[in-house]
Write a protein that binds this DNA or RNA. Structure first.
Lengths: 208, 208
DNA sequence: TAGATTGTTAATCGATTAACAATC
DNA sequence: TAGATTGTTAATCGATTAACAATC
């Protein structure tokens, strides 16, 4: 359990956790690797191998305790408490994500949005959080002890704003811009490119 | 060129295309695998291998013609014309994506949004596109000849709505719900789970 | 005990990378 | 021609899967 868990495995652990929550809600108390794997869309052998990274959690001939496994995963994934996040670039998409309740439901709280033109951004209206000027970011991050950011600025300014985030002490960036960010090794970046997802889909849809 | 292009390669082709567009804008007419790979965040050997799937497009000792490669990729990825898309689930995230200009800029047009309660959805206001009742979906899809959909309904109704989409003739679904969709083999699904992206990031951010 | 299902090993598969001959 | 860079082969790497002994 104290060896490095592979990246792809960590990602799947999140998927398993969501499946377990669903089973929990349905009142299931135990689940086999077979059943859980089916719900998560993976092979049973892969599920067992993934879970083995966390120690021997199952009972042979029986399966896994839903509740216990759920708690184990929450512990591993470090989501016991609310995670504060900031958002940079309150444009079209950024504004949407600030109001997205999917984050809140999953334990992430967007504390504030930042924009080079906070006034214009605020004019969109309907924000629960403050929208501040980029210049206020460093102080805010230090005081609120935030280490995650969502980046929603256009490609042209993405690298520059990423630099500011890193400078302010941000450790992890969820990047929606179409640019490959250059960041120090200790900063983690996950990229989400909605246009590429659609483009990819359209490629495979055509050869139906 | 007529063998199957691997899934991951297709995804990277989209990334390369975006890098080429940027080079184009900067007035570059040629690029080496080394330079393009760096911009895309991959190894040069991988870039060359990926491009080799499309035929021999480079000139040895010289590199690739930016414009020609760009056009080749556009052709392969099938993005010569505007792609019509519909969106199901005009809630928090769905409403945001309907207004997201990132799709439009990249050649995808969301023709309409559908919701079990179109009235409530419309009350959000500010839509450029019509918001229709789910019941109107089948007719709409047939008439407008759409084969791609963005799915933004809550987990509980995701499978049911996916069934309706498939029934109506949709070939490809960009799924934002946290559920593994069961669809026929010929229907393609790409999953985007923003909460999982953040959770994943927070895991790695902690072990800084 | 008999039946079921895990944890783990070993085999397979596919994707990435290094290296270099081909060639512009 | 000399220098550069591709296209491609072969080696490496990591991830997935099958299979089964361990064990509840």
């Amino acid at each position: 359990m104290r060896e490095e868990i592979p990246r792809k495995t960590v990602y799947r652990l999140s998927v398993y956790l969501r499946c377990l929550r669903r089973l929990s809600e349905l009142g299931e108390s135990a689940v086999s690797s077979d059943a859980l794997a089916k719900a998560a869309g993976v092979k049973p052998a892969q599920l067992r191998k993934d879970l083995a990274h966390l120690g021997a959690l199952g009972k042979r001939g029986f399966g896994y305790e839903v509740r216990a496994l759920e708690e184990k995963l929450v512990g591993i994934l470090g989501r016991t408490r609310l995670q504060p996040v900031i958002l940079a670039g309150v444009g079209n998409l950024g504004a949407a994500l600030m109001g997205y309740d999917g984050f809140a439901k999953e334990g992430f709280e967007i504390l504030a949005g930042f924009d080079i033109d906070a006034g214009r951004a605020k004019a969109r209206g309907g924000f629960k959080q403050p929208v501040l000027e980029m210049g206020e970011l460093p102080d805010f991050v230090r005081r609120a002890v935030v280490n995650m950011a969502v980046l929603c600025v256009p490609g042209k300014s993405a690298q520059e704003v990423a630099n500011q985030l890193v400078e302010a002490g941000i450790q992890a960036i969820l990047n929606f811009s179409p640019i490959l960010l250059q960041v120090p090794d200790e900063v983690m970046v996950n990229n989400v490119n909605l246009a590429i997802e659609l483009e990819n889909l359209s490629y495979f849809a055509k050869r139906l």
